Simulated scan of single mutants.
Amino acid sequence: MPTLTTSGRAPRPRPAPGRVLRNTVLVVTSLIWALPTWLLLVNALVPAADYSGEPHWWPQGFGLFDNISQAWTQAELGPAMGNSLLYAVTSATAAILVATMAAFATVIMPVKRKTLWFWLIYSGTLLPLQVFLRPLFLAYAGTGLYDAQFGLFLVYVAIAVPFAYFIMRNFALTLAPEIIEAARMDGASWWRIFWQIHVPLSWSAMVAAFVFQFVAVWNDLLFGITLSTSSNIRPVMAALAELQGNYSSVGPPVVLGGALLVSLPTVVLFFSAQRFFVSSLRLHG
């Protein structure tokens, strides 16, 4: 029987040392992870005219909207964000569709050498992207794809497919094979099984893969500055990098204000998709 205190209530159990240590590590790790974001916000708030050249750790005035306005005008962020939105949505959608088809073929359909097909497709993620820059630049310059939206679209689809395939293949491995066997016994074709059974069951994984690839394409800088030069073609990170090279004219607070602005679409997409993930888990649970 538990010992009662003078107030007649049982004393609260002390937290285990392991739990306290775990919570402390989580809090410290979270603070370290949030530190760059804090510095971004604080220095983006500083009016450009009042910036002394040293980073601020605490808010010094409020010039965020003026900084964003200057970044929007001087870097032409409006057209650049439109370009990145076009690239991210179309290339991520195409990559997810291709990856879902590949996962269906190598997991659900009776094909030979499934492991070999997996490594052939997934190997696209094993090499650093920098090794593709020079050959792509030379090939694009000789074929007319340089500084063209379709050229960037092709690159983004190509680099997005391997990781999207990794996600979709792992998800396809968790699906019950009895569903496909029953559909085949009823005379359904592979094409019908893919669109009417596999895609609806894989919808949550497709959304997760889409979010990953959208963020990757939106944040791309290497291919944007290598394969485009025109303001109506270049993605938003290339435009922001050009603004960052003009410290003497705009100042770091303007650059940080622009960086804060261009990060908003990915943040909004992430939280919107997070709600979808929860609803999908409840639906399939």
Results as ranks from 00 to 15, higher is better:
F271E: 09
G63N: 05
L227D: 05
L39G: 05
S230V: 10
Q130H: 06
F62N: 14
A183T: 06
E178V: 09
W190C: 06
M206T: 06
L173W: 05
L4H: 12
V157E: 01
S84G: 08
T106V: 08
L40Y: 00
L116G: 14
I108C: 09
S52W: 04
Y87S: 04
F214Q: 02
M1H: 04
Q274N: 08
L127D: 07
L21P: 02
A44Q: 06
L127V: 13
Q60F: 03
Q70K: 06
Q244P: 03
A95Q: 04
V211R: 05
N246P: 04
G8F: 03
T90V: 15
T174H: 13
P253H: 01
G18A: 10
P79L: 06
P235C: 03
W57L: 15
M109H: 04
A182Q: 13
Y87W: 07
R14N: 11
V236H: 02
I197Y: 03
L261W: 00
F62D: 07
I121R: 00
D66M: 06
W218I: 03
A95V: 04
W191S: 12
Y247I: 13
L40I: 07
G78L: 07
W33P: 04
Y146W: 15
I193K: 05
L145F: 12
S228T: 11
T5G: 10
W195Q: 08
P128L: 07
T5A: 12
G18D: 11
F194K: 07
G257D: 00
S280A: 15
T3G: 10
F163E: 07
G251Y: 00
R19N: 13
G78S: 12
W191G: 09
F65R: 08
T229W: 10
W38G: 08
M81I: 10
S189G: 10
P13K: 05
S7H: 10
F210L: 11
V217S: 02
A205Q: 06
A160G: 09
A80D: 03
